[in-house]
Design a protein around this nucleic acid. Structure first.
Lengths: 125, 125
DNA sequence: TAGTTATTGCGATTTTGTCGCAGTTGTGTT
DNA sequence: AACACAACTGCGACAAAATCGCAATAACTA
């Protein structure tokens, strides 16, 4: 947490209350969360500020985006992993990710995000 | 095309003009396209019907969704491939996909979609 | 060809995200 | 500790994307 704040200030950004609210929540929360839902959880922070903060944190690499069902979900950068989602009921499991980097001749700083979908056993009966 | 229509009717759905319009377009179009843009191309079909049709076709596995820049792009199910996108300028390349299936104990019918992002050489100067 | 049922088109509505701007807050400096 | 200044917030308006209900219509079935 300390390191995140210094990361912010050293990049020339202020450490404001709304930003702390967002970071605090993301630290306590162990699942990725959408901007909407995050705003519901910390509703005293304005919607626009939540969006602005998340965009900033993403630019700085402090949070990662998971593309879940075509919704952006945010979480503090951590172990790379994916999810597999049941198309019918939404049940999901984490899938560990064993590779971190790809090499491409025309690109650098390559990150990846994978969405797996399927039908879970329960829905398949 | 014939097979797609029988696939529709056998699933109990009608083969209507709007649905044919959508399928015709997707067959001729070689790139994935957003619902919005598809509606612009076949504007005589109502916006809501375009959305409803795409959702249906996706449920039936007739079209695939590519998550491009957090926008849903639709195309007829075909050769699996991915894209890599420059975060700054949007430049993209196709990335062939060499694997088709993953095995999971709790899921069947597993499909995957991966988004790669990076910074292209031009933007990196 | 008539009956029934799914589907369409339309307009209204919801959801999601952004913008501009006046007022406020954080930070570094004196 | 108070000041100064830029960055930031909250607010309301706005824009874009997608969905919904419903009356009218079109597709299949007998």
């Amino acid at each position: 947490m300390k390191s995140i704040i210094t990361q912010l200030t050293q990049a020339g950004y202020k450490c404001t209350k709304p930003r702390k609210e967002v970071l605090d929540f993301l630290e306590k929360n162990h699942h990725a969360i959408s901007a909407q839902d995050l705003h519901k959880q910390i509703s005293k922070v304005d919607r626009a500020s939540v969006y602005r903060t998340l965009n900033l944190l993403e630019e700085l690499g402090i949070v990662n985006i998971e593309n879940f069902n075509n919704e952006k979900l945010y979480c503090l950068s951590a172990e790379p992993h994916h999810h597999i989602i049941c198309k019918k009921c939404g049940f999901s499991e984490e899938v560990p990710c064993t590779y971190e980097h790809y090499n491409f001749s025309n690109f650098s700083n390559v990150q990846h995000q994978m969405t797996l979908t399927g039908v879970c056993n329960k829905c398949n009966k």
